[in-house]
Design a protein around this nucleic acid. Structure first.
Length: 448
RNA sequence: GUGGCCGUAGCUCAGUUGGUUAGAGCGCCAGGUUGUGGCCCUGGAGGUCGGGGGUUCGAGUCCCCUCGGUCACCCCA
């Protein structure tokens, strides 16, 4: 019973995003939409849960995400469902189901769920922005997709983001390479760390990605995928690198880059923010998945996409004091010390005229109401006291600039507030430190 | 799933070898200013000391359990 008295909390690893922070999220999503829609991508919403097999088949039963991190459940009809742990598999499922004309270019913003222990930059429910482009294997599409992610990251004002790219090969060249890698590792198995000695046969690539020194030492001389690409994959990768260079997207080839989902073929890439001193500094990543549509039951169709973690991106922005967003200020705050009817009517009139207005309730003192007006960040207070009431006027008191207050007839309030709004710079409620303009036009980009 | 650290007001924290009615700053409310916000002053509200059990004459302080938070490993956004 004592348990019932404990106040309720959001479940572990989840977070509330309340007002002014939510305004920043909205601004980020809007920025993303602008970038990708300008490139022909259309917004797609798909269900937040899918049949479990969509992920099991798509992401791969051997991956950690599917093996131990999925929010899996049975519904009342006994169906096995799962909350989406990532964005690609559901969109590929939607592609297979609806068969839109190719190339199909879609973007999404969605929560993603993974049952992991929360820590800095990692949540059980996090949010991703991403795109998927399905229907062509042209390497220039890889370049386009990577450049879009880069442009967003640079556009929000992050000065330092590292991009690593790699090629995973394809069914022509990868199996032979994997066999060669296993053959190299087998005799050295005893030198590997415990987990990777275990997984050597199932997923030898993971060993390359291991950060432990013992694995590092063993793999220093191990054969690399890049040296074993087939002719087609090599040409593809060359074209991707050439394209990135042509578009001034800085990158480094990382021949140890291994990504967590089984579906990747050829190009894979990852963006990290060195400014994040937390362990989780990957802000986004993606790759090509030329076999995935087929795995989902569609015709053989190539595709590529990426996902960006909203929480991590914003964390990285915090570290650089980038992407500071000021929510729009109120145009007016109505102060009424004569009963409240005027405030009621006036706020409604201002709002219906397209202005942003608020007021105080509970018939508080003028001092209290003006305090509230100040705190609200409103550009001016519209004051109604006994004198104004008698004269059919209101007093317009500027709050953000040092100017005299003026009296205007009741009829002229909307115009007066509108004029004030036009010439008063905005300042958000509780604005702390640097106040920038709400409109996000200028942002320098520095390329290393 | 494994491990470290931490739970005292809305927030950030103090709380002396266990010892009377648990404190501060900020925030909030009210007043100083019977018509005017930001600064200043005064007062006020607000605490199951995460929860449960134990030791003790006495527990915020010690012990056990539990819940929660946080950071890291694994892996990922």
């Amino acid at each position: 019973m004592a348990d019932d008295l404990q106040p309720a909390r959001a479940p572990g690893g989840t977070r509330d995003v309340l007002f002014p922070e939510s305004a920043r999220w909205e601004a980020l999503v809007a920025r993303f939409a602008a970038v990708v829609e300008a490139a022909g991508y259309g917004l797609a919403h798909t269900p937040i849960f899918e049949e479990t097999r969509v992920f099991r088949r798509g992401i791969g039963a051997g991956s950690d995400v599917v093996g131990k991190e999925m929010y899996e459940f049975e519904d009342r009809g006994g169906r096995s469902l799962a909350l989406r742990p990532e964005g690609t598999a559901p969109l590929v499922r939607a592609f297979v189901q609806h068969r839109p004309p190719v190339p199909w270019k879609a973007w999404y913003v969605t929560p993603a769920f993974r049952y992991e222990r929360p820590q800095a930059g990692r949540y059980r429910q996090h949010h991703q922005l991403g795109v998927e482009a399905i229907g062509t294997g042209d390497a220039d599409l890889d370049v386009e997709v990577i450049a879009l992610a880069h442009d967003l990251l640079a556009g929000v004002g992050l000065s330092r983001v590292d991009l690593k790219v790699h090629s995973m090969g394809d069914p022509t060249c990868r199996p032979a390479y994997l066999e060669e890698l296993r053959a190299y590792l087998r005799p050295r198995r005893a030198e590997l760390c415990a987990e990777h000695a275990e997984r050597l046969e199932a997923n030898p690539l993971r060993v390359l990605d291991c950060k432990r020194p013992e694995c590092r030492a063993v793999t220093a001389e191990a054969p690399r995928m890049l040296d074993h690409l087939c002719e087609a994959c090599r040409r593809h990768f060359d074209r991707v690198r050439e394209g990135l260079a042509a578009l001034d997207v800085p990158f480094a080839v990382d021949d140890r880059l291994v990504r967590g989902f089984d579906y990747y073929t050829r190009t894979t890439f990852e963006f990290t923010a060195p400014s994040l001193d937390a362990a989780q500094n990957g802000v986004g990543g993606g790759g090509r998945y030329d076999g995935l549509v087929e795995v989902m039951g569609g015709p053989p169709t190539p595709g590529i996409g990426f996902g960006i973690g909203i929480e991590r991106l914003l964390l990285a922005c915090d570290a650089e004091q980038a992407f500071v967003v000021e929510p729009p200020a109120l145009d007016a705050f109505v102060v009424d010390v004569v009963g409240g009817a005027t405030a009621r009517d006036l706020t409604a009139r201002l709002r219906r005229s397209g202005l942003r207005a608020d007021r105080a309730f509970d018939g508080r003192s003028m001092r209290s109401q003006l305090k509230a007006a100040d705190r609200s960040g409103a550009r001016c207070a519209v004051i109604v006291g006994p004198d104004e009431l008698a004269a059919g006027e209101v007093a317009i008191r500027p709050l953000r600039v040092d100017e005299e207050q003026v009296s205007v007839p009741l009829d002229a309030v909307v115009d007066a507030v509108r004029q004030r709004a036009a010439k008063t710079p905005q300042r958000a409620p509780d604005a702390s430190g640097t106040a920038e303009d709400e409109h996000e036009d200028e942002h320098e980009e520095e390329n290393p």
